[in-house]
Design a binder for these strands. Structure first.
Lengths: 133, 133
DNA sequence: TCTTGACCCTCCCGTCACGGGAACCTTCAT
DNA sequence: ATGAAGGTTCCCGTGACGGGAGGGTCAAGA
């Protein structure tokens, strides 16, 4: 299989696949013309990477997860710890975003949104926080 | 005021303040020795930027918001539209993260986390999704 | 056979919002 | 005079790719 086929099959951009080879996550063979040749194992690794990335794991996490996957003597606690750590980061991000959302939606709700210049959003940003409500 | 004072006062790293000058968000004067000199207006602009960034606005959004702030003939609808757009992006991110969180926490909960190698997290990533539950 | 269009390749720069650190100058207190 | 603590510029690195130039390769139709 060439890179385009793999790309279509997995929904991963060819650029991404080349990048994963660059950083050593996959090592596809090359055919005589220089094209990358992907065998089932390569496709499987890429699918694994795609799913791990979709869950928000960093590339380095993915590297670790792949190593654990191929390590017969792994402990599931190592995987679980990594995943729990990642879960914690996701929760932190959600929390930050929810804080922003709360503040900003309050401001948006108090803004008339007409053609007059008065705007509580700008007032708040400028520090003239006329402590809303 | 020198950059260090402003940094301390606003809780913004000096690097960040220099960066904001680089990209034209502020234009502090220079004293004879080449040091940046910040007057009240500069500090105010930086505080504005700090708050806008804390709400997750991009630098380009901040540029627009500052321009609107200094534009007497602005319409509050312009500000509100920008903020609503940003709110939408925040909501999208929260949604994505919540999807990841849901999937990942289910996987984490079904993983024994002991010293045996069997791990539903890795099984799922590898595509052997033994449809959990 | 020639061409055309769809592949593929490498290489390099751009993203976003800074952070780290080198190499250097200035100011202030001792 | 000296040393520490400020300030300056400049350049590279981050994460995970995307865009695009410039070029080679392949399969199908005229």
């Amino acid at each position: 299989m060439n890179i385009g086929d793999v790309s279509t099959r997995l929904g991963l951009p060819a650029k991404t696949i080349r990048y994963y080879e660059d950083i050593g996550l996959i090592k596809p063979l090359r055919s005589a013309n220089g094209y990358r040749t992907f065998v089932a194992a390569d496709v499987h690794r890429l699918a694994f990477l795609g799913r791990a990335r979709a869950l928000g794991f960093t590339i380095e996490d993915c590297r670790t997860l792949m190593a654990l996957y191929h390590d017969e003597s792994r402990a599931s606690s190592d995987v679980k710890d990594l995943a729990k750590d990642h879960l914690g980061k996701i929760e932190a991000k959600i929390h930050d975003l929810q804080m922003m959302h709360e503040t900003l939606s309050e401001l948006v709700n108090t803004c008339a949104g007409d053609n007059r210049p008065d705007c509580p959003i700008l007032s708040d940003l400028s520090g003239l926080s006329s402590t809303l409500s």
